[in-house]
């Protein structure tokens, strides 16, 4: 069916060219290492910052009210603008004030932009987890003489984090893809390498190759997420009927 479309041959030539694929693939794979690196150093920073934001936002201490307001504002602003725009603004803007090497690296500020935006999304996931722990758990902990922060650390957070692992994985899958956006401000990672190869040979096959490389990471991640979600659902529904 498809091969009979009039322009199919040309499409196959420019998107599914075996020779171009073999030629580009090793270069793309090499460039993909940078994507993995950005992902690897951004993720711990995102999780840590998000946790701090979520705890600050969930705090009930009246003295922390100004901090809570600040955190709510931060989360709203970060989530209210497309990630790509933050990467442009921070990635071009901050080095633009005339910082010296290595602090003018677009790679650094691109990563910072990812951390700032994603921590806002992930903070909301953590907060939902914290809110989902029943009030009676807090009462039980406080009644034993545990302080507010001990209650958070030993009783609330361990339960909250367990519950939000699946939605957290969803955000990490998105992050894995959005890492490629950093290429727009300079660093040669896979998407940019694919663009270079495309221009050199006037052939789109490198983009298809890049897509395949992304899928080889994101599909297993997505499957794992679904698996965890299903398990969590089974677990919580079992508790409900008991």
């Amino acid at each position: 069916m498809i091969p009979r479309l009039p322009r199919w041959d040309r499409v196959r030539e420019s998107f599914f060219n075996g020779e171009r694929l073999r030629d580009s693939f090793p270069r793309l794979l090499e460039a993909f290492v940078l994507d993995i690196k950005i992902f690897a150093w951004s993720t711990p920073a995102i999780l840590a910052l998000a946790l701090v934001l979520a705890i600050a936002r969930s705090s009930r201490n009246p003295a922390l009210f100004p901090i809570r307001i600040f955190v709510i504002g931060y989360i709203d602003v970060m989530r209210g603008v497309p990630v790509i725009l933050w990467i442009y603004l921070i990635g071009f803007g901050v080095p633009g004030v005339g910082l010296e090497r290595p602090f003018n690296s677009p790679l650094l500020w691109g990563s910072v932009a990812l951390v700032m935006t994603y921590s806002a999304y992930v903070a909301e996931v953590f907060r939902a987890g914290i809110d989902s722990v029943h009030e009676s758990q807090r009462a039980a902990a406080r009644s034993l003489g545990l302080s507010n922060s001990q209650t958070m650390r030993f009783v609330i957070l361990p339960q909250a984090i367990r519950r939000v692992v699946p939605p957290l994985m969803n955000d990490l899958v998105s992050l894995q893809k959005d890492v490629a956006l950093v290429s727009l401000i300079g660093p040669i990672e896979i998407l940019r390498q694919a663009g270079i190869d495309k221009s050199k040979f006037a052939n789109f096959t490198p983009y298809v190759a890049a897509a395949i490389i992304f899928l080889s990471i994101t599909i297993p991640l997505t499957r794992t997420t679904d698996h965890l979600l299903a398990r969590e659902r089974r677990r919580t529904s079992a508790t409900r009927v008991r």
Binding site: A140, S143, L144, G145, L146, Q150, F154, V155, Q159, R162
Partner: peptide, 30 residues
Amino acid sequence: RRRIGIVFQSFNLFPHMSVRQNITLALMRV
């Protein structure tokens, strides 16, 4: 609160902790 114990209608044990951990948490931390 250390001097006053309370037991709730709905038990309110910490589900992510073993019986031992439920009992020793406040002994150790408080």
